[in-house]
Every structure is written in structure tokens, then in C-alpha cells.
Simulated assay, not measured.
Amino acid sequence: MPDKVEACLLSLPSELRNAIYLYVFDELTSSIPDFPAKPDALAVALRFDNTAYLDTQHDNGRSARKLAVLQSCRQIHDEAHLLALSMTPFHISGDCSYPDLFDLRSRPLSPAKIGAIRHLTLTARISHLRALNEAWAGLPFGHPNLNLETLTIVPRKPDCTSSAYAEVADLSQSHTLAYIFAETFKGLRNIRTVEVLNKGCFNDVVWRIVYRSLVYRLWRWGGPTCGLRFECSPDAQDERDAWFRVHFQDKEDGVEVGEEVLRLAGGELPDPNTTGFGP
């Protein structure tokens, strides 16, 4: 009998290696332990050296653990790095909403690697989110190579220690946030879905104001079929876990803005001369 040859990953047919890579980088099937995510780490540069990878003590934990597979050898890196980037959600924060800082942090990545990224989460104060409509120029993070499937935004508001002004401050922030999103979504491209998570930022009343004001502004701008489709969490859901999604390309998800206005208004279109929906 011929001697047994010990199998290794690189000796497998390419189809099997690709199936293994898909398993490793898939969020649902990967068995790599989860670690708390710490924002502000765009950036796995994915060059073939250790300094290009993020330390799991200072980055997005789980993502970096999976991407560390690419450090095994040059062949695995070359075969799998674009697939890994496309399947890995990256979490960034704060000033990275501004195109100049995003560009600075992403410079270690080639245009091809930037173009492979499909899922980004941005956690930022509402004041930093102004960059979405003031500086992005219709492109996510103002970057021409980004073509995202999902952009998840987690807004954060300034701490307001004075209870006497907290409610007024929240209402002001809610209208600011709705305005930022509405102006951004009017011309945003190279993106499939934007998801906004409350994560305890606002109470249920103020969160509804954010969503209703956004839908109403876009209805007034583009009419009942402006090309955007909406989804939101049920009203009875805990506001800390509330969310809404705006779909830009997928015509099978969500409902058109006109349908959502009718639902929010109780089946009757509001007067377009009014300022918006009630809470």
C-alpha cells in the first residue's frame, strides 16, 4: 500500500479551501469565541506582516480573531483576504465619520481592499454625524471605493446632567438627527441598506419622533415613491433595542415612503404644510 500522505489545508482542492474560508469568515457558522468589540478600529491593513493586523486587546475583538487566519501564510492571505474583508463587519467611531480621518485610517488598505468591505458600523455623537450630509457628497464616508451592503449607525447624544433641560435637549437632538439622515439619504449611493440603532440613546417617545420626522421629510421631498423603502422595530419593543432600516436598492425589503406615511398617520395623509408627525 502506498504511504499515507498527511493532508493539510493547502493540499486540498481550491473548491474545498474556498468552502472552508466561507465557514471561517461567516458570522453565523464561525466558532471563534466572541470578544467585546471596541470601536475605532477600521483597519486591518492586511499586508503580509504582523504589524498590519490589529491586536485583539485594542480592536474589534472577534473580527480580528478571524482575520488572524490570514497571517498563517502568504498563500492563504492572497487567496482569502478579499473574501474575509467582504464578510467581516468593521466597527469605527467618532471622528471617523469625517472623510479626511476615514481616509487617513484606511490608507494602509489598497483600493481593492477598501472596495471589498461590505459591512461597517459607525458609533458617533450626533454632532459628528453632521458629516454625513455636510461632507460625504453622496458617498459613504466620502470614499469613492466603498460599496457597502450595510451601514449600521449608532447615534450617541451628549450627556445632559440637568434633568430640567434633558427633555428639551433630547427633542432638539432628535430633530437634528432626523434632518441629518433625511438630507443624507436624498443623494446617498454606493450603499444598499442603512440601519440605525437606538441602543438606549433616546426614550421611546423621542425615538418615534426621529423616525417619523425622517419619513415625513423624505415624503415631502420625493413624494410617495421616492425610491427608498422603510422598516422599523415594533412600537411595543423596548426603546433601547429599537431600530429602523432604510433600503436604497432592494425593492423586496420594506415599504415605500408613501405607504409608511399612511401607516404612521393612521391611514390618512397629513397636511404637507404642517411641520411633521406628532409623537
Score class of each variant (00 low, 15 high):
residue 1 M to C: 10
residue 5 V to S: 09
residue 7 A to F: 12
residue 9 L to R: 04
residue 12 L to M: 15
residue 13 P to Y: 06
residue 16 L to E: 01
residue 17 R to M: 09
residue 17 R to W: 07
residue 19 A to V: 03
residue 23 Y to I: 01
residue 24 V to Y: 01
residue 24 V to S: 03
residue 27 E to C: 10
residue 27 E to L: 13
residue 28 L to G: 04
residue 30 S to T: 13
residue 32 I to Q: 02
residue 33 P to G: 06
residue 37 A to L: 14
residue 41 A to H: 13
residue 43 A to Q: 10
residue 44 V to D: 13
residue 49 D to A: 04
residue 53 Y to C: 02
residue 53 Y to E: 02
residue 60 N to Y: 02
residue 63 S to W: 04
residue 65 R to K: 11
residue 67 L to F: 05
residue 68 A to P: 01
residue 69 V to C: 07
residue 75 Q to H: 11
residue 77 H to F: 09
residue 77 H to Y: 08
residue 78 D to I: 06
residue 78 D to K: 10
residue 78 D to E: 15
residue 79 E to A: 04
residue 81 H to W: 13
residue 83 L to W: 08
residue 86 S to N: 13
residue 86 S to M: 07
residue 91 H to E: 12
residue 93 S to G: 15
residue 93 S to D: 14
residue 96 C to S: 12
residue 96 C to K: 04
residue 97 S to K: 00
residue 102 F to R: 00
residue 106 S to G: 01
residue 108 P to I: 12
residue 110 S to Y: 07
residue 112 A to P: 00
residue 112 A to E: 15
residue 124 A to P: 03
residue 125 R to A: 09
residue 126 I to M: 07
residue 132 L to M: 15
residue 133 N to L: 00
residue 133 N to C: 12
residue 137 A to P: 01
residue 137 A to L: 10
residue 141 F to G: 01
residue 143 H to M: 01
residue 143 H to P: 00
residue 144 P to W: 02
residue 148 L to H: 05
residue 150 T to V: 10
residue 156 R to F: 07
residue 162 S to K: 08
residue 164 A to P: 02
residue 171 L to D: 12
residue 181 F to D: 04
residue 185 F to K: 06
residue 185 F to C: 14
residue 185 F to W: 11
residue 189 R to E: 05
residue 193 T to D: 07
residue 195 E to Q: 13
residue 198 N to P: 12
residue 200 G to A: 09
residue 200 G to K: 06
residue 203 N to L: 11
residue 204 D to G: 12
residue 213 S to D: 15
residue 215 V to I: 15
residue 218 L to N: 07
residue 218 L to T: 03
residue 219 W to D: 00
residue 221 W to C: 00
residue 221 W to P: 02
residue 222 G to Q: 07
residue 224 P to W: 09
residue 228 L to H: 00
residue 239 E to D: 14
residue 240 R to Q: 09
residue 242 A to W: 03
residue 248 F to R: 06
residue 250 D to F: 04
residue 251 K to Y: 04
residue 254 G to P: 04
residue 254 G to T: 02
residue 255 V to H: 04
residue 256 E to L: 04
residue 257 V to W: 00
residue 257 V to T: 13
residue 257 V to I: 11
residue 259 E to C: 02
residue 260 E to D: 14
residue 260 E to Q: 09
residue 261 V to S: 00
residue 261 V to C: 06
residue 264 L to T: 09
residue 265 A to H: 05
residue 265 A to D: 10
residue 268 E to I: 11
residue 270 P to C: 08
residue 270 P to G: 11
residue 271 D to E: 11
residue 271 D to Q: 09
residue 273 N to D: 15
residue 275 T to S: 13
residue 277 F to S: 05
